[in-house]
Simulated assay, not measured.
Amino acid sequence: MREQITLTESELSRVIEMAWEDRTPFDAIQMSFGLSESDVIDLMRKEMKKTSFKMWRKRVTGRGTKHSALRDPSITRAYCPTQYKNK
C-alpha cells in the first residue's frame, strides 16, 4: 500500500496548475511533490468536474511535453524561463 501524501491548499493548487501546464512533465510534479503520474491523475479526477477532467486527460494523453520519455532530450527545464517573473 502506498503512503498517503497530504498537501496544503496552496500545494494542491500548484499541483493542479502544473498538471494543466503543457510544458511541465509529470516527473517535475513527482520531484516537487512526491506524486506519481497516476497520483496526479487520481488527484485531478477528484478535484475537477467530470467534463474538465475528461478534457484534461485528452490533452495530456500521449503529449510529449508531459512525459519525459517522449520529450526532446535537449529540453532540461520544466517551465518557460519567462513564466515566473521577478516583481
Rank of each mutant, 00 (worst) to 15 (best):
D22Y: 05
D22T: 08
D22W: 07
D22C: 00
R23A: 01
R23Q: 05
T24S: 10
T24E: 08
P25Q: 06
P25V: 06
P25Y: 10
F26G: 04
F26K: 02
F26E: 03
F26M: 05
D27L: 11
D27A: 14
A28C: 12
A28F: 06
I29T: 07
I29G: 01
I29N: 04
I29Q: 09
I29K: 02
Q30K: 15
M31P: 00
M31I: 00
M31W: 00
M31E: 14
M31T: 08
S32L: 12
S32M: 13
S32N: 13
S32E: 15
S32G: 09
S32A: 15
F33Q: 08
F33M: 09
G34A: 08
L35W: 04
L35T: 04
L35E: 05
L35N: 08
L35I: 04
L35M: 02
L35K: 00
S36V: 02
S36E: 13
E37Q: 15
E37I: 01
E37N: 06
S38E: 15
D39P: 11
D39L: 05
D39M: 10
D39T: 10
I41F: 06
D42L: 05
D42W: 01
L43F: 12
R45A: 11
K46Q: 14
E47L: 00
E47P: 01
E47C: 12
M48G: 07
M48V: 03
K49I: 00
K49M: 03
K49C: 00
K50R: 14
K50W: 09
K50E: 15
T51V: 10
T51L: 06
T51K: 14
S52N: 13
S52M: 05
S52F: 02
F53Y: 15
F53H: 10
F53M: 08
K54D: 12
K54A: 14
K54Q: 13
K54I: 01
K54L: 08
K54C: 02
